[in-house]
């Protein structure tokens, strides 16, 4: 083979290799990333309430947001929305998420390793409260098996695809004057491990 032919062959091999490396890298990034939302949210695992990760700050300098929270790792977000997160680990039992909804639009999404698997908005609130119980399939079966037949259970039960994940809360401040309220709402969602009776 002529040297030029060999060179072209080597280049083609290199390009095929590049394609393989590209695909492998893109697929591997989510598993190797240390700074993804999941890993960052894990730091808040011990908290009983959600942590504000993005404060609503629409309207610029009119209202200086009181010290941007330290956990501000999100890329540019909607400036009118306060985002709170709360990590959970179902190894210790089902997790109960309770959010008091106010006049502001509030959405709650449950994220697992592979992305969001459930979302609900404040329109589903019963008497001003959205309450969810996240459980594994096993915990769900257990709860069904031990349920008292006379007592109606009104919990909204959601089966999580994996044991670890996090809950994100977004509260929209339609007007700059609602920002403080939105931040407070995003900070005050409680996520606690449910009692053994569940």
């Amino acid at each position: 083979m002529t040297p030029l032919g060999r060179f072209i062959l080597a280049t083609l091999c290199g390009l095929v290799l590049a394609g393989l490396v590209h695909v492998a890298t893109v697929l591997a990034i989510p598993y190797l990333a240390a700074g993804d939302a999941m890993a960052r949210a894990r730091a808040t695992l011990a908290n009983d309430t959600s942590v504000l990760v993005h404060a609503a700050e629409a309207g610029g300098p009119a209202e200086q947001a009181p010290a941007q929270p330290a956990e501000g790792w999100l890329p540019p977000q909607d400036p009118a929305v306060a985002v709170g997160v709360c990590a959970y680990d179902l190894d210790d039992g089902p997790v109960r998420i309770t959010a008091e909804t106010g006049p502001l639009i509030e959405t709650i999404a449950l994220h697992g390793r592979s992305g969001a698997y459930y979302a609900i908005t404040d329109q589903a609130a019963v008497r001003g409260t959205v309450e969810l119980v996240i459980m594994t399939r096993r915990q769900f079966d257990e709860a069904l098996a031990t349920a008292d037949e006379d007592e109606r259970n009104r919990d909204m039960r959601i089966v999580a695809p994996s044991r670890q994940g996090f809950v994100s809360v977004r509260v929209l401040a339609g007007l700059p004057s609602q920002q403080a309220q939105a931040n407070e709402a995003a900070r005050s969602v409680s996520c606690t491990i449910d009692g053994p009776d569940e």
């Binding site: 999100l74 890329p75 959405t107 992305g115 908005t121 994100s168």
Partner: peptide, 16 residues
Amino acid sequence: RAIHARTGEIPLALGE
């Protein structure tokens, strides 16, 4: 997914 893993983005879920 790779972009979200690198940026730490919390995407808007389908129902949100």
